[in-house]
Design a protein around this nucleic acid. Structure first.
Lengths: 343, 343
DNA sequence: ATGAAAGCGCTAACAG
DNA sequence: CTGTTAGCGCTTTCAT
């Protein structure tokens, strides 16, 4: 058992300097691949550092240099599929480049205000990624003023890089799919999310859906538009309300797969055949959508995370300068929960 | 617009000290509720700090004091339901106590080795939580030697706090449920996970399942035990192999809901009725298990996360000293995918 | 009860 | 190419 690494007392840069017979400055340079270090010296220092198991204390170096090699991610719900995918994607590319990720769940206005106010993340990270959190113009202004390295997934502000989809167009696709199947009485499950902070998404999807219907000369009754809170239960409750109206629709579009699955479940519990009596179209293409046979609008969620991370890295390395706005494609995936209307 | 907060230059403790007419030491004490500060002074300092929007630089204080107020969480797959729930639960209670969470995806041996070796997390966090990552005894020894504040979800080592379930007993419950329904030919989808690092879980669940079957005098054929890799697709492929044997089972137990759903989907694609021709029982009680009508073994996943966070907090505050081993209950949730065998 | 001063471990000029 | 020396912002004795 060779004592390659002695973990009793943290190895400092001085230990390495002493062992390598150079100054701490040289060690610092050598290890960070900065110029002005003789190749031989660099090699020797690297070897010593390796042998001693030395790793620069991130706090000390941040304090001295200002960089943390950490990026903060703020998102409403860590446990929801969509967000977990974005995080997973981002973590992968960030960690590959040596960055750590700090996770903040910002589920409502109160938390957001506090988050923005004390800006813990600010001193702890080199960049901030916010996922589907709606910031006010004033808040964007403030961030821009601070010169924050901010990248968004979802909302887009002209001053910051962003990754998003065209929700209006996507919802139009949804309407077209249903319309194309021959449906003329349509319902919509979406509406305002529970907490007002995330999501302009529901609005956009509603607008896009209604606009496409309008173009086809189809009107959607207001009582066929119900909020499903983006949850399974919400989707179930929403479809209940929609089906309880007189002359219920023959097809509904749910703004998330979770809501769609809840709606399908409830419709079937009520004895309706899906898609026979009711077609249901979801949104996202959740991991379980396929086994559920769910027709949906697919967006590359994990890719959102990877892309946003790439933007962050570009920003931090200076390769990306002007705000880049990435818009990912979406597509209709017709499976087994949408079909032409019975009649 | 009163300039309550000037974000141009970070506010330092000196600014506060100057503005409050005291020394930095006093500010430091006052703000951290340390003794030896006159009540009036404390109030004044607090007010000034508030007005200036001052927040101690976490890196500077960690450097000086050694604490980071951050806990690191390492888990194999950030994007899987189970892990995202654990993280969500932990984040909630940790952030409530002012702790930030650092996320590390450790998906295989290589990454784990590197993770353990350079111990980035070590200097960046006050505690480490590992979720379903199997550490060798030597690795636990090393961590114990370092005096690491480690809490596990899943694996249990006598020297560290842990949160777990009794997988053997849980799988026994699964077998008993199926056996109780009258099944005598049983299959098992689980086996080794893809990456060898996480999960003693599959082994334990297999052992528990087989043991319970054994007690009932029922033997499970080796070709009815197939690895499903803990994914939807894996579950589907696994059930294919099981059903392709001669004399296939009338019921299968999948060690995760995702695999169970994949299996059900495939069985139905093959024209089998579930549960008519084949009963399928899952494990976890995934958010979507209910809408899928999936019978399953429920474990309180989110609670795992909350509990592990509580243990971390206890450890860090010194309230918890000796290793605490929390074992969460599990229960059978019989829904619509398990029923007595047809014959 | 409060202040002065010595670091924490590292980086970044500035010399040489 | 390499070493010296200030700090970075905060905590913590040790005085007072």
């Amino acid at each position: 058992m060779k004592p390659t690494t002695d973990r009793s007392r943290p190895v400092t840069i001085e230990d390495v300097a002493a062992a390598a017979g150079v100054s701490v400055a040289t060690v610092s340079r050598a290890l960070r691949d900065l110029p002005h270090v003789a190749p031989a010296t660099r090699l020797r220092v690297r070897a010593v550092a390796e042998r001693l198991g030395y790793h620069a204390d991130p706090h000390a170096s941040r304090l001295a240099a200002g960089r943390t090699f950490t990026v903060a991610m703020a998102l409403p719900l860590v446990g929801k599929w969509y967000f977990s995918q974005v995080v997973a994607g981002a973590e992968r590319v960030l960690s590959a480049d040596g960055y750590d990720v700090l996770l903040y769940a910002v589920e409502d206005r109160t938390v957001l205000d506090r988050f923005l106010a004390d800006a813990r993340y600010r001193k702890r990270s080199d960049a901030l990624v916010i996922v589907d959190i709606r910031l006010s113009t004033a808040e964007f202004d403030a961030l821009a003023g601070e010169g924050a390295a901010l990248v968004t997934v979802g909302p887009v502000d002209s001053r910051f890089c962003s990754v998003s989809i065209d929700n209006v167009a996507a919802a139009g696709l949804a309407a077209d799919h249903l319309l194309g199947l021959g449906h003329r009485r349509l319902g919509l499950i979406g509406g305002q999310a529970d907490s007002p902070i995330h999501f302009e998404v529901p609005d956009e999807r509603r607008r896009g859906f209604l606009a496409a219907c309008g173009r086809a000369g189809v009107e959607v009754r207001p009582d066929h538009i119900v909020d499903g809170h983006f949850t399974v239960e919400g989707g179930a409750a929403a479809v209940d309300r929609i089906l309880d109206t007189d002359s219920p629709p023959t097809a509904v579009f749910a703004a998330s797969d979770e809501m769609a699955m809840g709606a399908i479940h409830r419709a079937r519990q009520r004895g309706m055949a899906v898609p026979g009596d009711l077609s249901v179209l979801g949104f996202d293409d959740h991991d379980l959508a396929a086994v559920f046979g769910l027709s949906t609008i697919r967006q590359p969620v994990r890719r959102h995370g990877e892309r946003v991370a790439e933007l962050v890295l570009g920003l931090l390395s200076g390769e990306v300068d002007d705000p880049v706005h990435v818009v990912h494609p979406v597509e209709v995936v017709a499976r087994a929960t949408t079909a032409p209307p019975a009649a």
